[in-house]
Write a protein that binds this DNA or RNA. Structure first.
Lengths: 168, 168
DNA sequence: CGCGATGACTTGCTCAGTCAAGTCAAACCG
DNA sequence: CGGTTTGACTTGACTGAGCAAGTCATCGCG
């Protein structure tokens, strides 16, 4: 009755690490979104799409490739693309050389939006994540994140995207 | 990779730390939810509610207190409570001593569900988060998470829940 | 050529979450 | 007392995401 879990427990250190991570997991995405929403009216996910397109040759990518970059299911990307399209930030069209593919292209407005949003977002990342840490911690954060990410991939055999990027 | 942003950038180390974190942020919550969903058909959030109630005297808490424990808005909790109620896992009733409050109580079934779900969840946390890390990294993870969480609180003046201070 | 298989999206349904507005009980104040 | 305010939820309208089913172009094979 005092301890709700009777079988297996996390020891004190583990519990603290887990609790701290869980709290961060709860708040950080919302905080990141909030910054972007305030200064560009974009979600972090949408920003990621603009980022990938801005970075691509001709500001153009196939939807499926874009879904990979954004760690997203094709469904989710499709919906987001529809939103960004109505905002005039991007534009979809069938690939003229192979009608099965859809090419997403950043519009001029979309590029401007991205460029407008970026400095503030970088600043947010600094304020919330990098500046509070020592340089050693930043390196640890990278390593820790990678290990956890790898564990997820390994354990789950998991892929969120429709993926199977066989480009070509 | 050319840099699409022209003004301010993250240096290589920072960028890697941030990218690694962003990837983890994208996958970890889904992976955690997936484990719980598989072995108990609960979301992580719902599990958190059961956890808090199981831990409370008489397995009972006020909704607003519960919202605190769960880092949740009252609205979100209210919806989740409705769900858990239809599953027969908990039960709400006005506080007899002060009708403004609502008391949430774990049912017998809810407690069983929680106890059933816990070992698997703890195992998932171990597999995905703790086991892949060295002990030093676990301590670093705790510290890093706390620093980031503190930065969020400080920068944003932010509170997701408890007191909705809508003046009006 | 023609017809089924395959792959790349897109869409209908449904659900969880948010914001804003509503409800309802108690406290506060004249 | 009675009206107003306050605080604790709850609800309505709407949005974003997932799954599964659908669409549509091309490919493979006879």
């Amino acid at each position: 009755m005092s301890e709700p879990e009777e079988h297996v427990v996390l020891d004190r250190d583990d519990l603290e690490a887990w609790a701290a991570l869980a709290t961060m997991l709860e708040w950080l995405p919302a905080a990141l979104d909030a910054g972007l929403r305030r200064n560009a009216n974009l979600t972090h996910f949408e920003y990621g799409i603009l980022y990938a397109l801005a970075d691509a040759p001709d500001h153009t990518l196939r939807m499926s490739v874009l879904a990979n970059y954004a760690n997203s299911s094709l469904t989710r990307l499709s919906r987001a693309a529809a939103r960004l399209e109505t905002m005039g930030l991007m534009h979809r069209a069938p690939d003229p050389s192979d009608g099965r593919y859809t090419l997403a292209t950043l519009t001029k407005l979309g590029l401007e939006k991205f460029q407008h949003a970026t400095p503030g977002h970088v600043q947010t990342v600094h304020q919330l994540i990098l500046d509070p840490l020592t340089q050693a911690q930043r390196r640890q954060l990278r390593e820790i994140s990678r290990r956890i990410t790898r564990a997820i991939r390994d354990e789950e055999g998991w892929q969120p995207a429709t993926s199977r990027d066989r480009s070509g």
